[in-house]
Structure formats: C-alpha cells, structure tokens
Amino acid sequence: MISSQKQAGALILPATAMVVLFLCLPLVLLFRFSLNRFVPGEFMVEALTLENYARFVSDPYYTSALLTTVVMAIGVTALCLVLTFPIAMYMKRASARTKSLLVLLVFLPLFVGNAVRAAGWMVAFGQQGVVNYVLVGLGIVDAPLTIMYSPTAVFFGILSINLPFAVLTLQSVLEGIDDNASDAAMSLGATPFEAWRLVVLPLAMPGVLAAGVLSFILTMNAYATPVLLGGPQFRMMAPIVASEVLDQANWPSGAAVSFSLMGTTLILTILINGYVARRYAYQR
C-alpha cells in the first residue's frame, strides 16, 4: 500500500523529527552546557571545561547523594524482586477474571502519578498517621515513631512505585513458561521450593533481570518520592538536578549532574547485567 520509499519517508519523518528536535537536540545542548562555567551573578559563561564533572566526583555534597541513591536503588530492587516473584506467580495462576482485575489493580497506581502516591504514604507514616496508630494501639511501641522524612519512608515510597513495573515485566515472562516443567520436577520427587529454584527460576531469569534493571533505573531517577517523603535533609540525584536547574539557575552543574547520573546508571546496569549473566551461566 505504501508504494515508494519516498512515501514511506514522508510518513515516518514527522515522528522522527519530533524526537530529534525535542529530545536529541536538547540533549546535545544540555551536554554543551555541562562544559560551560557557572559564575554567580553572571549566570552561565561560555567555556570548555570539565570542572563541573570534576566537582561531581570530588564534592561530598554530590558523592554522598550519589551513594545514597545507589544504596537506595540496590535495597529497593532487592526487596522489589523478593515481592515481585510471588505476586507474578500468583497472577499467572489466577483465573482469567481475577487476573484482569489484578492487572488493573497493578496498573492504576502506575499512572496515577508519584505525588499522589507519596500523599498516601504521608497519611501512613505521619506522626499522627495510620502506621503509628496501629503500632501504638497494638502496644508494639510506646510513643509514635518518626517515619516521615526518613530514608525508610522514601524506601517504601519508591518500592511501591517500582513494584507494578517489576510485576508486569516478570509476569509476561512467567506466562511463557510451561507449568508442565515444574510439575514434572515435582513428580520426580522435588519439593515445590526445589522445583521453583531449579526449574522455574532459571527459566524466568531473563524476566527477573529485566524487572530488576527497571527497578534499579527507576530508583536512580526517582524525583517526587525523595522530595516529598525524604524531607530537605535527604538528598538523592534527581532532586539535585531539578534544584540546580530551577532553583539555583546553575545550568552547567545541573547539566553535568544529569549526564553523570545517566552515565552512572548505565555503567551499573551493565555491571549488574554482566554479573547476573556470569553467575547464572555458572549455576547451570
């Protein structure tokens, strides 16, 4: 139906041009600005310097924030995977009706926006919140705990955002695994746990890896949750980018932090991928 290359080009050009103009070009500009110099009072001075990147690796303000972000990303991803597998298996086994309901239940929070979900955690974690009410009511603690504006609050906030992504990623892989494989293992004497560990888990490994990488990347770039649940003293990378660009108008630094964040995320993702692939191959 599309008769010529020229026609095909005309059909695909607008979308491509949109991405080039509004993503590629701005990123090139952002990279160029990261090499500029920030002079207080003068805004941005044209230069070709790496000093913004040098400050990123030497200034404890950035390195501690990066460390916080990476530790948070690893911790959230670990618990995320532990919770994702049972949920995804449960969804795979559910009847068609239950499954579509559960999928919708997982999907709704995904698009409601991170600020709204942070609001929910504020209700849970506040001094007068639901969690403290339950803990004090059950006599587990004597006085309300301070959970808001702590790394714990941010941890649960981000976990709750990443879980739907991880569940849907893993579930789509689990759907492709034949139940007969684990049934065969159990009929040959494996316990359900052994069947899971030796048969299902290796088959599902690509899905686990994809879900883990997604959760890791999402945490590295988390913005609203650390801002709303972590409070002003708690620093992660994405809020730093926003504050440098918008509040301090320090574009060169904001740009350098942006690229450093993307670079760190990329390198760590590749390392994790490589590590899991090696370990997994070794286990087989």
Partner: peptide
C-alpha cells in the same frame, strides 16, 4: 504472606488517599 504484603505496598497509598 509475600503476595498479600506486595499488593498492600502497591495499593495502600491509593486507599489511604
């Protein structure tokens, strides 16, 4: 327990709001 806990973490914030 993990299934219920996981769903709780996903849905709880919206329920509380």
């Amino acid at each position: 327990a993990l299934v219920i806990g996981g769903f709780a973490v996903i849905v709880l914030p919206l329920v509380l709001v």
